[in-house]
């Protein structure tokens, strides 16, 4: 039963609070997932610890080629940030596709990752960016690659009753690098993705230096198409290779039947289209 609501003003204060409540308090950011989960009794807690007023968490910064997004930064702020739009346009695209403007105005990017849904739009883009989550707790700070953040559907490595994901960081895209975020949804807004795909691709001369392809929801968490990535690495890319890579990517995915958002079979076939389109788009922006 919820008994208290605390507005933290600093990270330290928040950590002290988590400690005092000893597992009975839970971090809340935008609340767009947490408020619904609370009223559906999917989560229970005695105290909500609100981190949206913590100034240090509200920043989008660039440091030594890394972009750092604080835990209180919303999807809208990311979408409208010039820094993100130029240095990680796929994330601006992904955050911009979340729910609706009202949702994006409150929902946070970090919350999107911590909530650990397999097709969370920003999380999918962040994985393609090779993002790392900064986790702070009483014992200290650790850095966890986003791929290791998932313990299962809706289950994050961060225990929101004891730890705080304070920020998420990733390398800014450089010249010669391109990216894309594509999404298939049943309507133009307020629709969770049937599929989403994010690609970051680095060209060296004409060759693919490296590429990251992330697909969702085709596994319990956003899934890297490692085989397809390997296939493209070092290659001089063209439409044929892209088509082949898309096929390989599909063979790595195991989408499920969703009564709401498409059969496994349809999703599989669409995945090929989306991966192909994302690769093509990433290639165009890299050149």
């Amino acid at each position: 039963m919820l008994k208290d609501y605390i507005l933290a003003t600093s990270i330290e204060e928040a950590l002290v609070c988590l400690k005092t409540y000893a597992g009975q308090a839970r971090i809340i950011a935008g609340g767009t997932d947490a408020m619904l989960d609370l009223s559906a009794k999917k989560i229970t807690t005695s105290c909500l610890l609100d981190i949206t007023k913590v100034k240090e968490l509200k920043k989008i910064e660039s440091m030594d080629g890394q972009i750092v997004i604080g835990a209180a930064v919303t999807h809208s702020e990311v979408k409208n940030s010039d820094l993100i739009r130029t240095k990680a346009p796929l994330l601006a695209e992904a955050s911009g596709s979340v729910g609706s403007l009202q949702i994006r105005n409150t929902a946070t990017v970090v919350g999107n990752v911590v909530n650990a849904q397999p097709a969370a739009d920003a999380a999918v883009a962040l994985m393609a960016l090779g993002a790392v989550v900064e986790i702070t707790e009483d014992a200290g700070t650790s850095y966890v690659p986003i791929e290791e953040m998932y313990l299962g559907v809706g289950k994050s490595k961060v225990d929101s009753t004891k730890q705080m994901a304070t920020s998420i960081r990733f390398p800014a895209l450089l010249p010669g690098q391109g990216s894309a975020f594509v999404r298939l949804a049943q309507r133009g807004a307020l629709a969770l993705p049937m599929l989403n795909v994010a690609v970051v691709l680095s060209l060296c001369e004409d060759k693919v230096e490296w590429v990251r392809i992330v697909m969702a929801p085709v596994a319990p968490k956003p899934l890297r198409a490692l085989e397809a990535e390997k296939y493209l690495q070092g290659a001089v890319i063209n439409d044929e290779l892209i088509a082949k890579a898309a096929k390989i990517a599909v063979s790595e995915a195991t989408p499920r039947d969703s009564a709401l958002r498409g059969s496994a079979e349809y999703r599989k076939e669409m995945l090929e289209v989306l991966v192909r389109r994302a690769l093509q788009q990433a290639l165009t922006t890299a050149r």
């Binding site: 507005l7 767009t32 949206t52």
Partner: peptide, 15 residues
């Protein structure tokens, strides 16, 4: 200054 869905904004967040 921003539009929000007041049905899922915790009241305390309006502090």
């Amino acid at each position: 200054g921003q539009s929000v869905n007041s049905c899922i904004v915790p009241a305390m967040q309006a502090m």
